[in-house]
Amino acid sequence: MSAPLLEVDGLRMHFFTKAGVVKAVDDVSFRLERGKILGLVGESGSGKSMTGYSILGLVDAPGRIVAGRIALNGRDLTRLDEAAWRGLRGNRVAMIFQDPMMTLNPVLRIDTQMVEAVRAHHDVSREQALDRCREVLGRVGIASPDERLRAYPHQFSGGMRQRVAIAIALLNKPDLIIADEPTTALDVTIQGQILFEMQNLCRESGTGLIWITHDLSVVAGLADDVCVMYAGRVVESGSVDEILDRPLHPYTRGLLESVPSRNERGRPLRQIAGMTPSLLRLGEACAFRDRCSQAQPDCAAAPASSVPSAGRTLRCLHPASP
């Protein structure tokens, strides 16, 4: 069996601040095969975006990867120097950010921003790079690319800008795309279109996709596998059907019950009591225990990762019965 596209193993990324060490990513492991989509689900501050940045080597001081392995096609990225990492970024691994209003540089034309991405990795002429840009813009559904290339970002709608950002990510035919909530800031209809198109693009080209989101309903229709993150740790992972139909971790259940559903109109929505804990004050204990209805005294010990069934992981001593 050949190496999977991406294998993250025991990744720890900490911020060393004046107030103390913030364990933004704390022992995170998962794997992703070519052409598959992984949903990375969690609320603000759960470490899902930071996991994405770690894979791209975009962690800034005072943050640092302190342990773990990130293997892309079997090659460990954590040992790379900055120049080698730069060669990967935007080339083998691309990223799409949350707010399309902010990711494109407002004072540079679209062609400048696209051509530079091609030429950072390939020794081609501007004309050749432009050809590639037109082709990719066409693929993400942007009509009359020539005209669009000469425009500035502010002349585009939010949905169009996100398509451009996706096009930029696709320029160098990456093996892996990390999408950090790219549809959250968009209208629902456009969100649907983009989800559908991204799914197709990945299936066709065999590109792996990590979709970071707080929204379980997005993951439901899109991903093959799901990792649920809480306070820097993966609390539960498995195939999307398994997780949505048979959640084991009390947090995952809480998340699912707080999603409004059409079938249960009129029923009061459940919410998870309490607040997200501060990452500064976290010990080794299960971070969710203060909000958990199932919590027992032994939850103060570090919960080890267990394998409740094939292809699933769980970090809970007292899981909900399936």
Partner: peptide, 22 residues
């Protein structure tokens, strides 16, 4: 701190281009 700087870095641009242009 802006996202477009992070995005430019995510494209694999070198620090010269990120700072000098973006």
């Amino acid at each position: 701190l802006q996202d477009y700087v992070k995005f430019a870095r995510a494209k694999g641009l070198g620090p010269g281009r990120v700072i000098g242009v973006h």
